[in-house]
Computed example of a mutant assay.
Amino acid sequence: MTHRTILVCAAHPDDEILGCGGTMARHVDRGDSVHVVFVADGIESRKAMNAERERLLTERREAAFKAANIIGCERPHFFDYPDQRLDTISLLDITQSIETLLAALQPDLVYTHHGDDLNADHRLVSEATMTAVRPMPGQKVVAVYGFETLSSTEWVFQSRGNAFRPNHFVGVASTLVRKLDALRAYDAEMRDFPHPRSYEAVAALTKLRGATVGLAAAEAFTVLREVEP
């Protein structure tokens, strides 16, 4: 079996597990090397000052390390751009940061946010990722998939015209427990049901996505690009 290198480009720590934690675990179980990069720090928008900011940043990073360990992926990468302020950063700067990581890791597959989402950081990370993996000669990335992030993707205004309509599904019945265990590392970010970012809603979504394609549980994606060399 050929082992592949996978890169997940996420805006904030917890997006990766919400969007594709089960799929990441499945890749790991198949012998693939799974890497995650977080573009924004996930705490800047909370307006914490000095020592409090450092405490929150440390806690969020420790949660990301714990989640990665549960899934079995590599130690995460952090760009630490300001949370909910990616629109104040040059798209070129974000893109070039991703390009540098792509050059170092040489991934075969990339997962990132669906391109239309209520969260502006998610949209910008998707755009920067797609720019970084543009299909120039010699580009190693052969597939890019967009994931959904509960409490953001489903809230997008339908008038935007690019609502999440998945056309790629990955069975996660065997890795759902690990996805939920990893999500518990981010318990401070979770909410009580019926909030969509609750454990019950996350589990229910995998069952719904699975049922639409005849599986017990699945994560769903939009195919942003696939290339068969």
Rank of each mutant, 00 (worst) to 15 (best):
L91G: 02
K47E: 07
E154L: 08
F221A: 10
A25R: 12
A211M: 11
H12M: 02
L91P: 00
C73W: 07
E189P: 04
I98H: 09
L205G: 01
H113S: 05
G31S: 03
Q139E: 15
P196Q: 11
Q158A: 14
F157Q: 13
K140V: 15
V172Q: 12
P82M: 03
A211C: 08
A182K: 04
A64W: 06
V156K: 08
D116R: 14
T58P: 02
S97H: 10
G210C: 10
R85A: 11
V110L: 11
P107Y: 07
E228C: 04
A63L: 00
L183I: 12
Q139R: 15
D121N: 13
L57R: 14
S97I: 01
G138W: 13
L208N: 01
V172T: 15
K179I: 09
E44T: 13
V37G: 08
E62L: 08
L183Y: 09
H12T: 04
A216D: 13
F193T: 05
A104H: 13
Y111F: 15
R53P: 00
D121Q: 13
R165T: 14
N119F: 14
Y186V: 07
V213R: 13
E52S: 07
S159K: 11
K207M: 09
F164K: 06
L208H: 09
N119C: 15
D192W: 01
A132C: 10
T149R: 01
I43W: 00
L102T: 01
E148P: 06
A143C: 15
R30Q: 14
R178S: 12
D181H: 12
A120C: 14
A218L: 11
A40W: 02
G22L: 01
T5Q: 03
G42C: 05
S126E: 04
R191C: 12
R160S: 11
K66D: 07
T2E: 12
L56W: 08
A188G: 05
L91Y: 00
S151A: 15
A10F: 02
T153Y: 10
R85T: 00
T100Y: 02
G42R: 03
L183R: 09
A120P: 11
W155G: 04
G42V: 08
A132D: 08
R75A: 07
E127W: 13
Q84E: 13
G146L: 11
T100E: 13
L56V: 09
F169D: 07
N119M: 11
M49Y: 07
A182M: 05
S33L: 02
H3R: 11
P13S: 12
E59D: 07
A203Q: 14
E200A: 15
R165F: 12
N50C: 00
E59M: 03
G138P: 12
D108I: 09
I6F: 00
A103M: 06
M49C: 08
G161H: 08
A25K: 10
L92W: 04
L224Y: 01
D32I: 04
L101Y: 05
H35Y: 13
D32E: 02
E54Q: 12
E16Q: 08
L208Q: 09
Q96M: 06
E52L: 10
R178I: 04
T129C: 14
T5G: 00
F79T: 05
V172A: 09
R60L: 08
S159V: 11
R134V: 10
L183P: 06
G72F: 02
F38C: 03
T95M: 02
A201H: 06
A217F: 02
M49R: 15
F79H: 04
